[in-house]
């Protein structure tokens, strides 16, 4: 189904980054995510992702805590890992 190789943001481990490809969800959620910088083409980096509970994602110089369910609705193209932290 996902032909472009995009994966849910929640699949990325800590330190991995990606480029936002598309968002799924109602206008409330998509509107809020877009306002925070999760727009197609934006670079995001996962700061924390433990097995349960929310993630921390870095986008536009800010750290955003993102529920697992919400992170699963942001599809990203995984990037190489040029600067591992």
């Amino acid at each position: 189904m996902i032909r472009d190789g995009a994966v849910p943001l929640s699949n990325l481990g800590a330190g991995e980054s990606g480029t936002v490809v598309r968002l799924y969800g109602g206008i409330g959620l998509v509107g809020r995510l877009a306002a925070l910088g999760f727009t197609p083409g934006a670079t995001v980096q996962v700061v924390r992702n433990s097995r349960f509970g929310p993630l921390i994602v870095s986008v536009l110089d800010t750290h955003i805590a993102l529920g697992r369910g919400q992170a699963a609705r942001v599809y990203v193209a995984r990037r190489g890992n040029p600067n591992p932290r």
């Binding site: 809020r32 925070l36 929310p54 750290h63 955003i64 805590a65 529920g67 919400q70």
Partner: peptide, 10 residues
Amino acid sequence: PDDAAFIMEL
């Protein structure tokens, strides 16, 4: 809740 979503800036 307005949205069950947890989206919060740190």
